[in-house]
Design a protein around this nucleic acid. Structure first.
Lengths: 112, 112
DNA sequence: TCAACATACCTACAAGTCTTAGGTATACAG
DNA sequence: CTGTATACCTAAGACTTGTAGGTATGTTGA
């Protein structure tokens, strides 16, 4: 089970919020590709995790959607609401602190 | 729910393995205190998560235990087995990569 | 032509981890 | 003698994610 593509709990929704902070509108498939590209294929968001996460963020009022047909295929674009932006800033900062702490723990030197 | 003390899924067992890499023998309560100290109180391992995690690592053969009474109280010391050491090295490296990827994603600059 | 692959969405179920909320017991300080 | 720190533990539930499916269109190459 522990392929190195596994995500860390709680990070997915923050990643989504972060990507939407940097790019006004994104659709699901685009998000999976972007993450793959940005991590040189080392991280992969599964669709079974992504779509429910998107729907949850939408239900929480953090995202709005707009469906559009492009090249014969339907795309559902997501963007941040005002609340979404606020939450994004807050959650990104929290996760940042968490990552710093984890990195500090992992780079400990033995206290002889 | 989202107190900033939340852990990231999968990180707890790696933290345990890492601490035991740096310190031969540790007991549960000691681990909770060490993590609190090393992160300036920003991260707290709950006992409800820690003890099951320790038991699981032991069941997997990565840790061995030795109980000892100190100052009237029983302490259960955990240390790495040979397999535990191997797994520790591997999991620490994997989590490191994951943290790097997450940090890269979180520190993205907008691509105008 | 038609098979395979990329694009694009979705859900149900299971697996797994963590939090919450308890429990027991000893030592020590006020 | 009450509260706090130390020290262990478990059960139940919440929550997130992975697995494994499903549908459908467009493109590419054999």
């Amino acid at each position: 089970m522990n392929s190195n593509q596994q995500l860390l709990k709680g990070s997915l929704s923050v990643i989504i919020l972060k990507l939407l902070e940097e790019q006004e509108r994104m659709y699901g498939y685009e998000i999976t590709q972007k993450v793959k590209a940005l991590t040189a294929g080392q991280m992969a968001i599964t669709e079974g995790a992504l779509y429910p996460a998107l729907h949850k963020l939408e239900a929480e009022g953090l995202l709005t959607t707009e469906t559009q047909v492009v090249e014969g295929r339907a795309r559902k674009y997501y963007s941040l609401t005002k609340d979404g932006h606020t939450e994004a800033v807050s959650r990104i900062s929290e996760l940042g602190i968490m990552l710093e702490n984890l990195q500090r723990l992992l780079t400990l030197k033995p206290a002889i």
